[in-house]
Simulated assay, not measured.
Amino acid sequence: MTNHIIFDMDGVLLDSEPMHQQLIYETFQEKGIPFDKFYIETLTGMSAYPMWEKVKHDAARTETVEELMQFHRDYFFKRLPEIQVPLVPYVKEVLEKFKAQGKHLSLASSSPRKLINIFTQQTGIDSYFEVIMSGDDVQYSKPNPEIFLKVAQCYNLPPAQFTVIEDSTNGIKAAKNARMQCIGFDNPLSGGQDLSAANKRIQTMKELL
């Protein structure tokens, strides 16, 4: 493993994928969008704009992408006060170990920065990361490598010096497209994700200890 490690957030640091998928499903129901939870699993790892662009196309909706995004965001933040998202088991221990070893830790998530700040502060892990890159900071979503390459640019280092830890098909593809090493975390709560392109796969964060 390299000395620079990039963590995805949802499904890697936080067991939040079921919450996100459920709220997307509820948004679909509110809007009368006839897609099921299997369809929603294919959206895992995408940031808001490309996700709703795809939904708009697939469901032949007349609203703009921005209108769909805003409806989802309003619904999400209306529900947020009642949501408590747990850390993935052993994540805190892994972060402590890597810090003690002098590794440089970053977070790169397709979620909005506001949400990243809320959840990382709520769970007490925000101080572990030297760089935090959000979906708000990039033009293109995973599987495009832009978010990971931007982290590398912050350190002025080549991508080959980074290891990404991801739980989604789109995230794995983005890491490989960035020419970075990638560990695939097989989180059962993330749905049926294809992690076969990862350099290594783990079933639990405890394996990193």
Rank of each mutant, 00 (worst) to 15 (best):
L80T: 06
Y25P: 00
I40M: 03
I40C: 02
D36C: 02
K97I: 10
Y75Q: 13
S47H: 11
I83G: 01
L23W: 04
E17R: 06
H57F: 14
I33G: 03
V94R: 00
T42C: 05
A59V: 02
F35I: 00
K31L: 12
M69P: 06
I83M: 10
T44I: 14
Q84K: 11
I24H: 01
E66Y: 05
I83F: 07
K78M: 14
F38Y: 09
R79I: 15
S16Q: 08
Y39G: 01
E30D: 09
A48Y: 00
M51Q: 03
Q84F: 09
R79E: 15
K56Y: 13
L43P: 05
Q70G: 08
V55E: 03
P18C: 07
P50H: 07
P81Y: 02
E17W: 12
P81F: 01
T27Y: 05
E66M: 11
P81T: 12
L95Q: 03
M46S: 14
I24K: 02
E66T: 11
K56T: 05
T62S: 13
R61Y: 15
K56H: 10
F98N: 00
I83D: 00
P50Q: 12
G45V: 11
K54Y: 15
D36T: 08
P18K: 07
R79M: 14
E26W: 00
E63M: 12
E96D: 15
E67A: 15
F28Y: 15
K99D: 05
E63I: 06
F38R: 13
G45F: 10
Q21D: 09
L95H: 08
V94D: 03
S47E: 03
T42K: 09
L43C: 12
P86F: 06
F77N: 12
Y49I: 13
F76Q: 02
K37W: 05
P34E: 05
E96N: 12
E30N: 11
V88D: 00
V91R: 01
I24L: 11
F35A: 03
F28D: 05
K78G: 03
K56R: 14
H57Y: 15
A48G: 12
Y75G: 15
M69S: 07
Q22N: 14
T42N: 06
L43W: 10
Q29A: 13
L43Y: 12
E96F: 02
E30Q: 15
H20E: 04
W52Q: 05
T64C: 07
S16G: 15
E30M: 09
F77R: 12
P34T: 03
W52E: 04
P34K: 09
R61P: 07
I33E: 07
S47I: 11
Y49Q: 07
V55T: 04
K31W: 06
V55D: 06
K92N: 05
M69F: 04
D36I: 02
E67L: 15
G32K: 10
P89R: 05
S16F: 10
S47N: 13
M51C: 13
Y90C: 04
K78V: 03
Y39V: 00
P86H: 07
Y90T: 06
